[in-house]
């Protein structure tokens, strides 16, 4: 996750409280989604950004996960995400995301 985004996540977490924050990802594949999810839960695995060594334990989902899909108006979802949903390996993303949440999410 790039350093700017790490900074924003950290600031929001301080401003609104980590329990009130959900991070939604749009990464194009499982590994990248998993790394970003790890960054906002366990901390930056590359030890390069503001979240290095900071375990926020935030709730984090990928937009293609069923939990998120159910939250969105079906027509809007189809217009904005429908095509990418077809392209991405959703099962792989769900697997990675679930694994990270089980391990590190505190809320």
């Amino acid at each position: 996750m790039d350093l700017e985004n790490q900074k924003r996540v950290k600031e929001y977490s301080e401003q609104f409280g980590p329990e009130n924050l959900v991070v939604i990802l749009g990464a194009a594949e499982g590994e990248a989604a998993g790394l970003a999810a790890e960054t906002v839960t366990a901390g930056d695995p590359t030890y390069a950004g503001p979240l290095a060594g900071v375990s926020l334990g935030l709730k984090v989902y990928h937009i293609c996960e069923p939990e998120m899909k159910d939250e969105v108006d079906a027509a809007v979802y189809d217009e904005q995400v429908g095509m990418m949903e077809m392209v991405l390996d959703v099962d792989e993303i769900v697997k990675e995301m679930s694994a990270i949440r089980e391990q590190y999410t505190k809320y």
Binding site: A28, G82, M83, M84, M86, V87
Partner: peptide
């Protein structure tokens, strides 16, 4: 992934 996106539009 670009080609898949174009293909996905063709499907839609």
């Amino acid at each position: 992934s670009n080609y898949k996106m174009i293909a996905a539009l063709a499907v839609k």
